[in-house]
Design a protein around this nucleic acid. Structure first.
Lengths: 249, 249
DNA sequence: CGTCATATTGACTTTAGTCAATAGAAGTGG
DNA sequence: CCACTTCTATTGACTAAAGTCAATATGACG
């Protein structure tokens, strides 16, 4: 483990994530870049952590997509959020335990695992890190709140459109969007579990989105020909993502 | 402001909240009890903070119930969470701004307003406080996740039952439950906005809960004759509330 | 080539929403 | 305390959204 390309990628992503709201000191940056990480790959659908567990490491997504979800007694699954490259799988897992939900790979995924103890001691030496992590927790919570509004008050059609908008903006921030398109490996079952819908209804709503020319979904690629139109349909306002102001062109 | 009975009540609640997971040092306890607070009353429905605002004070509920909510373009309202006595209205509002949602009184309510700057400087002197606040943020997020699962995967009947269970447990922790009953001032519109339902359907689902003898709701009081049955109906598991182990009897 | 997961379709059921009317309660001004 | 307004709760009739069940494609993969 700790192959050097992985480590470099992990460091870059981690710094980018933590500096999203405010720059870090050189000392902290360099401490973070020598942080001990264990890189681990997961297959699509593979469980990363179970509900009720108390992991000793935080996960940080390097590649792929990771779900947090709950299973209900009746067998239903509710996806609670999607973690993309540059996200912690669970920004709060080191302050409150055990996990109240499970975590699994939603696509083939690569994670950096960072021991809580390492984060802990870094936080003690660098109070800025605390603030950066709190902000990350807060951002995560903000996304969760928007999901609540979506589940509660948007139609199936809007929910899917909204999710696509969110993924688009978040992936774009991570540099994963090219030609208004991004790789899309989720199944209709995944979409249903995220939006609280049956797969049949997901299928029909996707068809409606296609017919309305809001999305083109083929070859595991989601293409958005007219983002403004999709946002309009979804009643999507990216403010809740707290994206930094547009970077220099 | 700062009438002494208010201040005493505020201090007690605040310490109880912050010591939920771990005791605080005597120094921090005493610093907290001299924290400058401004006590303010709100009428039912009164706006406490608007979406897009960047408040300079955190709110801490002393009495009543407070909603966080979003308004959607089509006019719908989604309640994102309910803050009860002993809760911060918005545990994250000092790390990420502006507010991505609005805050209003769901019943006549009394809040202590604590300047962010005061919290900030206390946190610098007492790292324990940071940890306590992070845990509170994490707990708040955990509750949000359960709401997500509820909105996505529970029926109207179950959603209402689940909300009643949650309020019961949380209020019980705050000492607000007597004879298996608690004061209940929410309207059916409020319940609908919390559960993503129309008021008509809330009304009918409540009738079903009554018919099944799971709740008795009259005179602004909610009585739960058989908690085990209500929990069963709601598929409610209080684990997500991270309640402390049962206290000595 | 055969198997398993995923996507699609049709027919039908159920849940929940909408619209509209009425009844009850609470609050206000006189 | 009364008349009046307004909010809240309830009911009925109807519509629409979404779920269920079952069958059939389609695609990925060993």
């Amino acid at each position: 483990m700790n192959h050097s390309p992985d480590r470099l990628a992990a460091t870059g992503l981690l710094l980018r994530k933590l500096e999203r709201f405010a720059p870090l000191s050189a000392a902290l940056r360099s401490a973070l870049s020598t942080l001990a990480v264990r890189v681990q790959d997961y297959a699509r659908g593979q469980l990363i952590a179970s509900q009720g567990e108390s992991p000793e490491e935080s996960g940080f997504v390097l590649e792929g997509i990771v779900f947090r979800f709950k299973l209900l007694p009746d067998g239903g699954r509710q996806i609670l959020g999607m973690q993309l490259p540059g996200d912690f799988t669970d920004p709060h897992d080191f302050v409150i335990r055990p996990l109240d939900h499970a975590i699994a790979a939603g696509s083939p995924a690569r994670l950096a695992r960072v021991p809580h103890a390492a984060l802990q001691s870094l936080m003690e030496q660098h109070p800025q890190l605390i603030r950066a992590l709190m902000r990350d927790m807060a951002l995560d919570a903000a996304i969760g709140r928007e999901w609540l509004a979506t589940l509660g008050r948007r139609s199936a059609y809007q929910q899917l459109a909204h999710l696509f908008c969110e993924l688009y903006f978040r992936l774009e921030w991570g540099g994963k969007v090219r030609d208004d398109s991004f790789e899309f490996l989720l199944t209709q079952t995944d979409l249903g579990d995220a939006c609280g819908l049956s797969t049949v209804h997901v299928n029909r709503s996707l068809q409606a989105l296609r017919k309305d020319k809001l999305i083109v979904l083929e070859d595991h690629t989601l293409h958005v020909p007219d983002m403004a139109a999709l946002m309009e349909a979804a009643a999507f306002d990216p403010a809740y993502l707290y994206l930094p102001k547009i970077e220099a062109a």
